[in-house]
Design a protein around this nucleic acid. Structure first.
Lengths: 345, 345
DNA sequence: GTGAAAGCGCTAACAT
DNA sequence: ATGTTAGCGCTTTCAC
């Protein structure tokens, strides 16, 4: 070993006068090493500032203790709490994380990406790309080829794949029901882009809640946005024309709700007096909108944690019982009631 | 090779009737292979669906073509645009990315983290943890030990380390100067936490701009927040007491500015009539606050891209010229003028 | 243009 | 409790 190169297991073994295997046992905390030997080896490891090569280990064990995380649209993702949950939980369970971002939501060529992960011997894959258009169609053709467990976030239920998702339908029903409970009858909806699965779920929740209350949802009561504040403004202006009697609106996310509040403010529409508003997401700032926004809080940290926890379990169980049933876990979001939807005293 | 295990370079070589080295040359696009041989081998690679093991490659090349990215407080990081820039640029330059998140901003035990990256043979490290308190003190003791290039984001200038950062001081001066240009004289400041280097830079920019205008900044004109909307509200309320003549406020970020606007709205303070407000960050939503918020836009995508581009260059140059001068790159933010600070017509 | 030998740093399986 | 052998899948170096 020269001065500049890091020591290997071999140097440690030589200095300690043992075989590499014994050193290996020590660094892997195996029980079958004599206490004295262990002490001696540990001392030498310390002196040499030896650190085992994870690469070599991955090669010989044929696994890396890494997960592959695939995302898309990170820059739009609001506070990246899902990511944070994933990162924290992975760390806790002693897995490393490879991060990849798709260049666009509708990536067509999935295979190179999967292969990139597989070439690095990841133990599992987290698919954190929203379900949009046909961007899940590859699954049915390729899911069998993937030799590691894979978990999907934010996804419609499907055969043979494991999913962890927020219950968007439930959240939307809750939001709409809350507005009905406030005595509102003319409840509009600003949806996200309709090619997003999440948007469709939220739309459906709004529709079903209305129907259950004996109100038939009509086309003119809905306007489509693209999640941005800007699009929310346009959608709201459209609703004002197609649905002038509107006395409440359920917005597909908080950012679009923000521009409803803003438009209302400049046009002297009283919120909640003339118009009650409910958002979706539960951004921390939503409590500081004017007025404070009633919203559906989705716990994305928990979403991330659950995904990783589940994936880790899949990895471990796989050793014992190869092909288990896929899981389908939904996380219920919570209604947070604030000023924007509550009666004026 | 059994049916279930993936083919190795050896299987390809055997099927093609060549040695493994020849296959290696093909998969690495080396020129010294006969065209016919190359064709034949490529065909077999395709048939076998062979994919080289990045792990084995890393081991034998002693490098991984991965970067290590260390972050902290992902969940508060607003839209994770820096991350997005980093991910996109890494992908573009053909580097993989390990993502780690510190459990807290003031992590004390840095060495295990560094070793984790080094054990995986990363080619370079991106330190995307904000500079807070003494959380950079480890650098002077350990920077020499790190055997790979490392680049710091958002950091004060230092000897011997490479840095890419937004010019916070410049941005704050710009913001304050803009308010002065509008004829405001009583300009308060809501700062971020004072143990953050960024906060101190912004404070300093505000101070220097005032001084240059012949106004002496006083303690009572500043209130400290913690970046959250909630803290911004409290800070603003404090300023209303300590600095009642205030006719403008420069907020350390947009989220705190939001709650200034909100408080002003409920207390019937006219913005910008009675109070001009400028934020910092340039969140997309800030255009939809009421009124639309004047702010300092920091291009964090570019920040991330620049960091990766620089790091990649450091990696490549290292082969040629071992110890180059460290770089110090600042990115100038831009003033975006909107309703919240412009004169009422 | 191609191949043989040696090695990257570690661990699994089987001795002893 | 410890050592030996034989890989893991690829690249580097040198020979031809």
């Amino acid at each position: 070993m020269t001065k500049n190169s890091k020591p290997t297991i071999y140097e440690v073994a030589r200095k300690a006068g043992v075989s590499r295997q014994t050193v290996s046992r020590v660094i892997n905390n195996r029980p079958d090493v004599a206490p004295a030997t262990r002490q001696r080896i540990m001392k030498i490891i310390d002196e040499l500032d030896y650190h085992p090569s994870a690469i070599a280990r991955s090669l010989s064990q044929q696994r890396s203790y890494n997960f592959g995380l695939l995302t898309a649209g990170l820059e739009y993702m609001g506070p990246s709490t899902t990511l944070s949950g994933i990162a924290k939980k992975s760390e806790e369970l002693n897995y490393g994380l490879y991060l990849k971002e798709l260049p666009s939501f509708n990536a067509n060529n999935i295979h190179p990406l999967l292969e990139w992960f597989l070439a690095r011997q990841v133990d599992g894959i987290i698919w954190a790309v929203p379900e949009i258009g046909a961007n899940r169609d590859w699954i049915k053709d390729s899911i069998e080829d993937i030799r590691v467990p894979i978990i999907f976030l934010t996804s419609a239920k499907r055969e043979k794949i494991s999913i962890v998702t927020i219950d968007n339908y439930f959240g939307a029903r809750q939001a709409t029901q809350h507005l009905l409970d406030q005595g509102r009858k003319q409840i509009g909806h600003i949806s996200g882009p309709m090619d997003w699965w999440e948007s469709r779920q939220r739309l459906k929740g709004w529709q079903d809640a209305l129907r259950e209350a004996g109100i038939e949802p009509e086309e003119r009561m809905v306007a489509e946005g693209n999640w941005s504040s800007k699009s929310g403004k346009q959608a709201f202006e459209k609703l004002q024309i197609t649905f002038p009697e509107m006395d409440a609106v359920f917005s597909g996310n908080d950012q679009m709700a923000l521009s409803i509040l803003q438009t209302a403010c400049t046009e002297n529409i009283k919120v909640p007096g003339d118009l009650a508003v409910v958002g979706f997401d539960g951004l921390p700032e939503s409590a500081y909108f004017s007025p404070a926004l009633t919203t559906i809080f989705q716990n994305t940290i928990e979403l991330g944690c659950t995904a990783v926890r589940t994936l880790a379990r899949m990895v471990e169980e796989r050793d014992i019982e190869p092909s288990r049933e896929p899981v389908y876990i939904t996380i219920k979001p919570d209604l947070i009631i604030r000023r924007s939807s509550t009666p004026v005293e």
